[in-house]
């Protein structure tokens, strides 16, 4: 899923870097505002980023019998909102490139665009849309994570197809080629990530509901809500 170091031609690497820059700058400004308003957020955001980094290191079983790892972008966007997730995701990609030799620095812009921008925004958009129709939380979480994962791979396919057009059929053929290869493994993986995210959210609702309420994902119910309203 990460485009490897040196995989993209120089012009494409620069173009994706330029395309990602406004989103990263916007996210960095949002994060800076948040930290200046609430200095203690630095630690919370750092913990959130570390969680995203660790989540992307978990191996999940794939339908094909092999293993892969979740992108974590859907859950991250639902919990921390897409602009912040863009910054956390970009830092995570930087750490992965330097500490795990996974991804790259010249492809950081392209990887950030697919994994830290397009995926989180798409997943969060679906999550918010379903929430407006009063769909149960776990269903919205499943589709949020599913689409974040799927859109990440679709954008990666587009990036690769633009860089390596098919000799016979050009961009459409290359898109079908890369998309087809990804579809075999990534549609089952997107379903797996959606299911895993639902299981994680269920456990979090039991063990860390106060954190989820603080993040705006869950609402207080019953006695806790009445106590909060009385305050």
């Amino acid at each position: 899923m990460h485009i490897a170091e040196g995989f993209l031609p120089p012009l494409h690497a620069v173009a994706w870097g330029v395309a990602s820059a406004p989103f990263v700058v916007h996210g960095a400004r949002a994060l800076t505002r948040e930290v200046k308003a609430n200095p203690e957020s630095t630690l919370l955001l750092g913990a959130s980023g570390a969680f995203t980094f660790v989540l992307s290191a978990l191996k999940i079983p794939s339908v094909t019998g092999s293993c892969s790892h979740p992108t974590g972008t859907g859950l991250g966007a639902i919990l921390f909102r897409p602009p912040v997730m863009t910054v956390l995701g970009t830092i995570t990609l930087l750490f992965q490139a330097l500490l795990l030799a996974h991804g790259g620095l010249t492809t950081l812009g392209a990887n950030a665009f697919s994994m830290a921008i397009a995926g989180p925004w798409a997943g969060y958009g679906v999550y918010r849309l379903l929430k407006q129709f009063d769909v149960p939380l776990m269903v919205t979480v499943f589709f949020g994570a599913f689409f974040a994962d799927l859109v990440t791979y679709c954008v990666t396919s587009v990036q690769l197809a633009l860089a390596f057009p098919d000799p016979s059929s050009g961009f459409p053929g290359a898109l079908a080629k890369f998309g087809g290869i990804f579809a075999v493994t990534q549609i089952p993986l997107a379903v797996s990530e959606g299911l895993l995210t639902v299981l994680v959210m269920r456990l979090l609702m039991q063990s860390s509901k106060s954190d989820l309420v603080r993040l705006g994902v869950a609402k207080l119910t019953g006695g806790a809500a009445r106590t909060e309203a009385a305050r």
């Binding site: 960095a28 400004r29 994060l31 800076t32 930290v35 200046k36 630095t42 630690l43 955001l45 750092g46 913990a47 980023g49 570390a50 969680f51 980094f53 660790v54 290191a57 910054v87 956390l88 830092i91 995570t92 930087l94 750490f95």
Partner: peptide, 19 residues
């Protein structure tokens, strides 16, 4: 921006402990 670097530093430190 310094706040972004601070967040990255916390991510780096907590990341290893979490792993």
């Amino acid at each position: 921006p310094a706040p972004v670097v601070d967040v990255a530093l916390v991510m780096y430190r907590i990341g290893f402990l979490l792993l």
